[in-house]
Amino acid sequence: MAPEPRVSQAAVTARSLRKSYRDFVAVDGIEFDIQRGECFGFLGPNGAGKTTTMRMIYRAVPVSGGSLAVLGHEAGRPMADREIKRVVGVVPQEDNLDGELSVRENLEIFCRFYGLSKSEARARSSELLDFVNLSEKANAKVMELSGGMKRRALIARGLAGSPQLLVLDEPTTGLDPQARHNLWERLFALKRKQATLLLTTHYMDEAEQLCDRLVIMDKGKIVAQGKPRELIEREVTRHVVEVWHGEAAAPALPPEMQPLTRRSETLSDRLLLYVDDGEAAIAAAARHWPNLETRLRRSTLEDVFLKITGRKLDE
């Protein structure tokens, strides 16, 4: 059999990708390339269009405009869509495990959708239960599981078809810290095996840890993209000085500190100074506000996120 033609070596390529529901535009002309073997993140406030983008990638909703190629298949034609669906695994944001079946049966039924025989499905399900530490709950009904266990079952189910690309839509929401770190370990293990991971999360520390590259979406558009550290250095500064003033009125920025500070932000209980030279800035701040608590920290992705998407709740 001749090797099938590849549209590109990228795992996912999107150009001017659009999705509208009637006259509401949920995804508004986004472009990105996800390389094979990388962990790629989608961040953004509620309603930004992350889930909609994921659903287009795993071919559960049609594309309204632009082009999308997944693992070498141009999305949209029926046969190509089936091929894509076969090699993409999905961990959805919403729990949609089958409540009438046990955990093991859930996995076995799913394995069958990927063409596994009865005995293969059984073996694969045991493997997967082991992988997410749920072997003890194999015969429990879904409703007997805790929230975190359900998420783990969903992750196991997403791996049923041995996917080349795994889409994880907020996989760690609702997990306790142990389970979260546990899952990170599992994701690293998958990455070592060359799986491509596509992740959305609202935890910035998670994105910083796991993602090789990421995009930030807002109102259906991509508003920033890059490697986490690059993004931080480009969008904000290397360091932040926090000046805690508590109940008192926010202090004004003294002239001597202005050259050190690229941008400042006033919150209800503290002043944030985005600075390049952390050492100099914290010394100056301590000198100027001897009675206030001053702190120096590294900038995080959260600072980037809040700068770009704003601090207010839109909806």
Binding site: Y58, A60, P78, D81, R82, K85, R86, V90, P92, E94, N96, L97, D98, F110, F113, Y114, R157, G158, A160, G161
Partner: peptide, 10 residues
């Protein structure tokens, strides 16, 4: 069905 639509099934 949302779950099934994430498999090869249409």
């Amino acid at each position: 069905y949302d779950a099934y639509l994430a498999t090869p099934a249409q």
